[in-house]
Design a protein around this nucleic acid. Structure first.
Lengths: 350, 350
DNA sequence: CTGAAAGCGCTTACAG
DNA sequence: CTGAAAGCGCTTACAG
């Protein structure tokens, strides 16, 4: 009573006086192959259209062992970084007849495992995953389960899997060199825990290598870590420490959440950007282009990450080919106002 | 070969020397009801745990006629308004054993219908939908199909359905009165087509009524419509017209996309906020709190919309009750810097 | 206390 | 050219 009884294959077959098997073949465009007469095929299609019949996908899934559904596991769909990737994946998926089930892991490895199991039990054909796991067990299990999957944004070193991500090292390296070129000598780095994530590790390396290459020492006290789940609580203390005690000239925030939280606190503490402190962001968001001042950033090709991840996944789903693809996409440096634009801005501060 | 053969109920039954039916009953916690001996139950659970067996949800769905999956149809998951709602729905869903399949309609009624059918054929138990349809046909069909659904953000007047949305009229009314209270007399309104959406209609009414209530005439040339799919292209012309020709003092943008696009153009045209022009936004985003200047806005209870929509949906899924719920949630006025703070700012302009 | 059988709605190998 | 049968992995009414 909840659901009006929907028309099924059998109904069509009965009304037409043919077998369900025949209808099924016609519907799957295998009528010719099975030499079903054109008239019969025509009759089938007409009735199907008239009754607005759509095959029950659940039954098909059970029978065929595939579901035309893929799972998407990310930390948080409300983070613009992931929602743009999700959008892009969905566009591709939709164009290829696939649907997306998404679940948020909240950066909790435990939850990530549970969610992944749930998705697999729901019969997904493949998985796109931004993993927050620190050890390799989960990913190894995934690989052993033989479900096709593609990691995005983060990967697990030492396990051969598909992955698609941005040039984290290069982006941080380039940004750091940019800051050095502006004359800044004390450049702080703000990162989040869990710091095992490859994204953060590579960005930190990029920063360190750029300093070293330019003859600057890496000072560990200028590299600050804030716990992912309470960024806001710790930001104030960290910023005060960096600006007032360490007297840094620029702060490089390693993801958009950090940058946004940083902007909030800097505003509250009445530090002016870039007069009092220069800032740069890894990961660009739309408003950075229009805010006052505009925010210098490294932007990642989010749409490409999503699109390519889906393509790689689809390829693996459709073939027995087990060659894994590792793809690193180029990032872009957006030079804007938040770092000042010359030595002059630096001298103005003194 | 693609997928390792997974353990099934039958495997468990065989290994234990019992029937699949028994295992099924135990797994569904109906062992006691069926008077399965505690020892047998214990044995079943032990083996299930040992083999890490999880029932095949596709088979369950087919048999039970439900899938513990709900569909989410929105215009665009990468719009922060929807992605926060999606997050909130997913949290609730997850806590209740449901998964979410999302699809984007791109504000295209045609696509919305197709997507909805796809979701229904995938066996979803219910649907949460931000409709972009202008006529009632689609929603009526949906209602007649007997699938439980809840509209969010927008509803269709004249059709009794569940819906959960924000106080659009009140928010626009309050914001307009706020702008009037600051001494502004020429207040422009920027809205998007398709303008049939109830959200936009109500916001426009709120603006108009606030003007009238305060003895101000509504001037239609101060109400501008921009097409949803090329906001950026039209924004510059509209803003120039309003500011330079109409000499408005304040612009009220009716959604966050408009506000963001507006900020971009204002910046490019070098209009200062609020010295040259005051702006207000319907729909708040995080950065509005920290930008320079901070942006005065109406914020909607996005998390509540998502949570309550799911609760309403779940209630309908679980009961034969067909009473529909119409829920309008309160909005909040955030007075910040983008409108100046007194008559003084107004005089400064002259 | 437990099992055999039917069936959810499809698809496919087999038979004619 | 077309149909009958089996089966995907579950659950449930029925039987003993």
């Amino acid at each position: 009573m909840r659901q009006k009884k929907k028309t099924s294959l059998k109904d069509i077959a009965k009304q037409l006086g043919v077998s369900p098997a025949l209808v099924s073949m016609v519907l799957n465009h295998r009528g010719d192959e099975k030499k079903v007469s054109p008239e019969t095929q025509k009759k089938v299609w007409n009735l199907v259209k008239k009754l607005n019949y759509k095959p029950n996908q659940v039954a098909r899934s059970l029978r065929l062992g595939n579901s035309k559904t893929i799972g998407l596991v990310i930390a948080d769909i409300s983070n613009i970084f992931y929602s743009i990737i999700a959008k892009s994946i969905e566009e591709q998926a939709s164009a290829n007849g696939y649907s997306i089930i998404f679940m948020s892991s909240e950066e909790d490895p435990q939850k990530e495992e549970t969610i992944t199991r749930t998705l697999i039990n729901r019969g997904i054909d493949g998985l796109i995953l931004s993993t927050s796991c620190k050890d390799r067990d989960h990913i190894r299990k995934l690989r052993d389960s033989n479900i096709p999957f593609v990691l995005i944004d983060r990967y697990i070193p030492g396990i051969k899997t598909n992955y698609v991500l941005a040039g984290n090292y290069q982006g941080a390296f380039d940004m750091t060199e940019h800051l050095l070129s502006l004359g800044y000598t004390k450049i702080a780095l703000l990162t989040v825990t869990p710091s095992h994530l490859t994204t953060m590790k590579h960005r930190i390396s990029g920063y360190q290598d750029a300093l070293r290459k330019n003859g600057r020492a890496v000072k560990n006290k200028l590299i600050k870590e804030i716990a992912y789940n309470n960024i806001k609580e710790n930001m104030e203390k960290v910023l005060k420490d960096l600006i007032l005690t360490e007297k840094v000239q620029a702060i490089f925030f390693l993801n958009n959440k950090l940058t946004i939280a940083g902007l909030e606190i800097l505003k509250r503490l009445k530090f002016r950007i870039p007069q009092d402190i220069s800032i740069a962001s890894f990961d660009d968001i739309e408003l950075f282009k229009y805010s006052y001042p505009t925010i210098t950033s490294v932007s990642q090709p989010k749409e490409d990450i999503g699109r390519i991840a889906f393509e790689v996944l689809l390829k693996e789903i459709n073939s027995q080919d087990t060659a894994k693809q590792q793809i690193t996409l180029p990032v872009k440096l957006n030079i804007r106002e938040s770092c000042g634009n010359s030595m002059k801005s630096l001298f103005n501060k003194i």
